[in-house]
Design a protein around this nucleic acid. Sequence first.
DNA 1: CCGCACACCCACACACCAT
DNA 2: TATGGTGTGTGGGTGTGCG
Length: 861
Amino acid sequence: MSQEEFESVPQDENDNIDQALLNQNEPIQFFIPINEDDRDNLEKLIIDHGGEVINDPGAGYYISKHHDPLRDAVDPKFIYESTEQKSLLKVDNYKLYNHANAGNDDHVQQLVTYLHNDHNGQQQQQDPEQHQQQDQDHQVTGEDHQPTTVGDLIHEKEPTSSNALVGANNESVRVHNTSSNKNGFTKEEDEIILDEVRRNPNRRSTHVLFKEIAEKIGRHTGNSVRYRYRTYLVNQLDYVYQTDEKGNLILDDQGQPIIADKLPITLKTKFTADDDYLLCTLVRQNLQDKLGDEYEPNPKNVILPGKFLEALAENHTNHTKSAWRDRYRKFAIPYGIDNYIEYYDNEIQQGRVPDNIRNFTGKHLFKSSKKYKNGELDDNEVGERLSEHNDQQNRRRPTKKRKTNEIQTTQDSNNLFANGGQDDLNNYDPENGDFANSHTAAAVAAANRLNNPPNPEDFLTSDLVTAKFFEFQPLISAVEKIEEIVNRAYEINDAEQLITAFYEEAGIQKKFGAYIITCVCGDLILIPKYIEMLLKTGENPPRDIHGIWTSRDDAYLKSEIPERIEYIRRLHVNPYLKMSSSKDDTKLEGYNKVVKDIEDQYINDEFNHENTDFEILSTMRYDPLLTSSVDPNLFETTTDNSKLFFLFDEHLHRLNFTLKFFKLGYEISRDELLIKLNESIQPLDKSNSYRIRLTINKEGQVNISTHLTPQRYNLFDGFNSWENYTSNIWNVYIDSEPIQISPFTSFKTTKRDQYNMARNRTLNLESEEPQEVLLYNSANQITEGSITNVAFKTFDTNTGEEEWITPPLASGCLCGVVRHLLLTKGIINERQINLKNVRDGEEVLLFNGIQGVVKGRIIKR
DNA sequence: CCGCACACCCACACACCAT
DNA sequence: TATGGTGTGTGGGTGTGCG
């Protein structure tokens, strides 16, 4: 077809093209939104190939890589690939509503997938049918995920359930056979449902929304549409649109809906234990203030002033005034506020997670109980209920697995997308953002999502606290210490002293202490609250807390959306008033100066990569034996020779992810990488194995050097039993001091000072023995070895089965390529490992992209 | 016979009203 | 105004029977 690909072609040659758009012998028309990436180039390609670019978005093909529900957007790849292949390809295959095609080889999606897999390897979606039998099993255990031999792992079948968390590779779109006489849902109907949910994300749990959709579609009832969404489509909800506080769509200046980065909260919010505790303590405080010694515990008939409830709802906007009142009436009073406070405090003291108030109308508790009499229990039985409550709490975990795939956290408003890690990626914004948006953000976010409630070990990383902090047991008792420190007399310019006290006495890293002070705008009294909420929710900074300022709040203020600004005003107005009405204006200035100094001194330079000299690094193995020694199932099916480079695609993903993290502004394509690698081995004897050292500098130049490396006949033989293990056993010595984690430990770069220093101080580098140094961070969490990632053998507490665990990325360890492979295959799992639990003589696995997996033995000396 | 479409369940968050 | 009575429909499911 040569130069004229976009001139219309006769229908019989191309029956898949929308006929309405086809005028025989007329150029095909395209509309490209003004803000579309690469618009100029697209326009040129179209015109050069005989097409026409028009200004009417309603006519012609709408070319955009952003899905637009109104317009049936066509992926720009249609243009690129048609012109490249010099033939008009099937446009249907590029329509973005087509889930089977959408994003399959989308670069960003791959990175997201890569990242997400790394953190959620075990969070495989379960089929609803499977789920019912597995209620008892907290973990997905069993043969599928814990193969015991390398052979098993290599031949491991794909999980039977589709991993709907991963947006790409989505063959699980369940579309009914429309030729059947059942009233099944068609692909189009499914898309309408999804689209309505995207436009009404805060109503996604309601019945009415689905009734409305059903009326729109006309072929189903609201019940069935709702069930369809909740059972099958929720996994495909890869994004929603931004809505305002009332649930109306927010449009951009083009009048288009904007894709949101978080799921909004739903219309009603469940009361949590913290809500109940807050309610009870505030009511009690209020009454004690009023009554003094007259106060009697568990008051039944008290007057709650409307002002009290109003203030409560203003400061804690997760529930309305009515809801707070009703909660108090129907739950707190029957239970007794002092009973609940006692129960809650006790649970915290015991290191358990308190349950919310279950009042005596809670039928789920009493269905089979003969003690349940018209919802009333006498006072004697309250104690019994409390202990039953406790028992139930103890038995509560593992909890029932959820059927739907909307990932829940302690706060719905904090939900991230199921398919995602999109947020993980977005969080990698070193310039502006919260402290949590550091290089460990992705891992922390994932850890938080995996733990409901969160496990402090997972988010208290060593860039936040030191080992000192973990000496507080239970951890929540650290809040008292911090309170004490804060309450000492400080002069305005004593910030340094305060931060030092936090660091030395409470184990708060200086940078983090400084960050907290900026979050609370210098109002020190809020700092204990910050730590308390951090421990309880895992959110950093904790959101929606009066006086604790987050980047979300900044964004809301800048949004110019009245509802959002009003929300922020209601949340934070009091500290503002307090500070601005302060008679001592110099004090206010002093605060501001301190905050600014702190920011300059501790925070702003944190991600100043520009002044650091480094290159992105990957070391990979060229190995001619790879075609035979490693089962090809481990690799993607490719016709090229990429399989001769051990874990080629893992390397590619990591390189690009690293480039993106450091904001170097470019990426390397698969073809480019493969060509470079092939060039580098071209002059060599290809029957040998080589270690390839590949660097990319800030200008994007790729440099490769090659070095002979010994043959290894089984790169995974570390998994063999001791009898069958023929390779060298590495001696693993424990470092004499902690390393400081940073982006340069999380990502592989040429800046390896920490690693080299650890090797120098701990290893005898003259020695010929294979050896490695085991590193740990300042919170005494094991991270990795100096040139390998590491895994320890444990036993699953539920099943008693052997399990290999590796430190999570939140520890600060490198996102190694073998590590990632083993995680995604379910062969190893992530868990924090404390230095004190490492035993002399213990067997470990060491792995990297050169050696594969080898055995090591801990040597303490 | 079984998977899917559709019905139904129910505690409770939030609301409204009369007194 | 504070408060009890009570409605509504969300949020998170489970039950059932048809094609």
